[in-house]
């Protein structure tokens, strides 16, 4: 057999980027299961629909760019984007919302920047932010959780859900939607936080579903940590800073600000902490950088939720910090072996 000449190292750990992405997909399963259990088939359908679109879109663009299609599709990054967007969108959002979202995510936010690894912003979050700004109505009506079935609510059947998403079963869906806790909190008018819970008994009853979903995401995140897909720095920093600042304000003005637990479990906090902010491509690089990056997201989430115009803030916070990541990188180089202190900035 002819000998080959090749440079070291000659040993490699088995594994590929595709494996990393698959692991991430597996980690989203508990969250997806919880969503489906509490809010019906919507999220699952969104994810399948989104994945189909994303793969098709990715294939088309990769072909346009004259690259090997199967090689790029098997890194599964398009699927991850679709799944994350599917988890973030309201379960009954019409099909075209997802379609617009995927086009934005895959075509604009990812491939136009040069494909995987080169995008400065998290594609799913770019799409989400754009949709939220463009279609506020569709984006803020969330499915009602099934815990209220005792009072006549029930999860929409699969067929109804399909027609809700792909048809125009407006009224049937309307009965099954409601605002998210964050939205309610945002638009509680003159009520204090306490009064709000009293006013919205339905929400107060259904909050458990949100807790459960958050817990599921948390589990997925821990699994990824265990698998060493990312390090603890970003999620811990993000959750930590959000906890600290919300606790501070809650202690000072308990009437005006919800408690930290609410912040941690409502909306996309857990999804953001473990699946969005940890997106390596768009986050800071070094461990120290990730601490700053995560802390910044936590802070921004609180600020936007408390004083911004939009109910949830994870997407905006992540995008803003994506913007800062290159800057953070320059100031958070690790101290290399044999150096007294880390280098700072660019030359």
């Amino acid at each position: 057999m002819a000998l080959i000449r090749i440079t070291s190292p000659h040993a490699h750990r088995a594994g590929s980027t595709g494996n990393v992405m698959l692991t991430v997909l597996i980690a989203t399963l508990p969250g997806l299961a919880a969503l489906t259990f509490f809010f019906g088939w919507g999220s699952l359908i969104q994810i399948i629909w989104g994945t189909l679109l994303a793969v098709a879109m990715e294939a088309a663009i990769v072909r346009l760019r004259k690259r090997p299609v199967s090689f790029y599709l098997t890194d599964y990054s398009a699927v991850v984007t679709a799944v994350l967007l599917g988890l973030a969108l309201p379960p009954f959002a019409p099909w075209w919302v997802m379609t617009v979202g995927i086009i934005v995510a895959i075509v604009i936010a990812k491939q136009l920047y040069g494909g995987m690894g080169n995008n400065p912003f998290n594609p799913a979050m770019v799409a989400y932010a754009l949709l939220l700004v463009s279609f506020p109505v569709q984006m803020t009506s969330w499915a009602a959780p099934f815990v209220m079935t005792g009072e006549g609510w029930s999860v929409l059947s699969l067929g109804d859900t399909l027609s809700a998403i792909f048809g125009s079963a407006g009224t049937a869906v309307d009965a099954h939607t409601m605002a998210t806790p964050l939205d309610v909190m945002r638009h509680r008018g003159g009520f204090t936080t306490e009064e709000m819970w009293v006013e919205n008994a339905l929400l107060a009853n259904g909050i458990g579903a949100w807790h459960a979903v958050s817990a599921a995401y948390f589990m997925g995140g821990v699994f990824l940590l265990y698998k060493k897909i990312f390090t603890w720095h970003t999620p811990v920093a993000m959750l930590g800073s959000l906890t600290i600042i919300s606790t501070l304000f809650f202690l000072l003005m308990p009437d005006q600000f919800p408690d930290p637990f609410f912040h941690l479990t409502a909306g996309a906090t857990m999804l953001g902490a473990f699946f969005i902010a940890t997106d390596p491509v768009t986050s800071a690089t070094s461990n120290r950088g990730k601490l700053w990056f995560g802390a910044g997201i936590g802070l921004l989430i609180f600020v936007i939720r408390s004083w911004g115009n939009y109910p949830d803030a994870v997407a905006f916070a992540v995008l803003l910090m994506n913007l800062c990541a290159p800057f953070i990188d320059q100031y958070t180089q690790p101290r290399s072996y044999g150096h007294a202190k880390p280098n700072r900035g660019m030359k």
Binding site: S16, T17, V20, F71, D75, S77, G115, M116, G117, N118, K228, I229, F230, T231, P280, V281, S283, T285, S286, N287, Q333, P334, R335, S336, Y337, G338
Partner: peptide, 20 residues
């Protein structure tokens, strides 16, 4: 064949010279 760097940071975690 090499894929794009996803900046996963695994290399950073193992570098004995503590580089990026």
């Amino acid at each position: 064949p090499a894929q794009a760097c996803i900046r996963c940071g695994m290399c950073e975690q193992v570098c004995p010279a503590e580089l990026l």
